[in-house]
Design a protein around this nucleic acid. Structure first.
Lengths: 155, 155
DNA sequence: TAATTTAGTTTGAATATCAAACTAAATTTC
DNA sequence: GAAATTTAGTTTGATATTCAAACTAAATTA
């Protein structure tokens, strides 16, 4: 018979393994789902970039590079690819001619929404069977995790 | 004043964003923490490979390639690097001479444990302030997520 | 107006990845 | 039990990703 504390050890052990394993899988299925749809030329990294560019923000190239922690040169290369494939637009900034703002084409917006829908489905399943209090508690655990990440990143 | 359902929308929205953002950060801080220690020549991907090889299993090259979803050629290249750096051993299988089993050197085991300790700290912080029932509930959410991943991967 | 800073691109080198061809060993088939 | 097939892992050649540093053009500051 398992004691209460054995149960907890088992739970935390499972959560540990899960945190390690889950993301890789999420990236993989995101990519394979998106490629089953009409977006056959898109990788997981590219979806991530499209998500970061977003629907409405018109971020600059530097802002996006900073968010994704990519060098400026790498981002330029990635943007060239997504522009060539027709998902992303470079929008010269009229006030400051050094700046390029980024936007999604209509195809890019479709991709954004398809990815977003898949993610919402994923979260729905993640939270399946939980009531509002439970969900609030799970949210708090994610806050903890982000706090820890911020702390470690800062030091 | 927010209604209850607004609160839930906010929570699930946060969880959604969090799931997207958190892993990248985890990979990044894992790498930077490991490089602050005595393991300065190691990338996040390599830690992941060392974790997969594990302390006791003596997995084959093909098993590890399958787990990490890498081609055999890619894994050979990765193993060459980790062998050169002194973390991984190739152990010829005496019963079947085609097979190479994989193991960690003592340096590799040190790296494994350092990474494991960091991960345990991370989970500890993830679960900070929760009681046993809460933890069990969070574990259940992770099970949900893995189920969803398995379902989508299978179809 | 000259010097400096800033935003983004280009360049060149290093690394990672894959699929396909290959080698050697084990298993199956006849 | 020899020949054909399968399996495990490596090598090869091509492609893609990434970075830092040099560069260009525009804006800001001195």
């Amino acid at each position: 018979m398992n004691s209460q504390s054995d149960q907890i050890k088992q739970d935390t052990g499972f959560i540990n393994e899960s945190l390690i394993n889950v993301y890789d899988s999420i990236m993989r299925i995101e990519e394979s789902e998106i490629r089953k749809s009409r977006f056959k030329d898109i990788t997981a990294k590219e979806v991530h970039l499209v998500h970061t560019i977003g629907l409405h923000d018109r971020k600059t190239t530097s802002e996006v590079a900073h968010i994704l922690k990519l060098s400026k040169g790498t981002l330029t290369a990635n943007l060239n690819n997504l522009e060539r494939k027709g998902y992303v637009m470079r929008i010269p900034n009229v006030e400051d001619h050094r700046i390029i703002n980024l936007g999604l084409t209509s195809k890019g917006r479709l991709l954004y929404r398809a990815h977003d829908a898949f993610h919402k489905l994923l979260v729905q399943r993640f939270l399946k069977g939980f009531n509002d209090d439970d969900i609030h508690l799970i949210k708090q655990a994610m806050v903890n995790l982000e706090d820890f990440i911020d702390e470690v990143s800062a030091k």
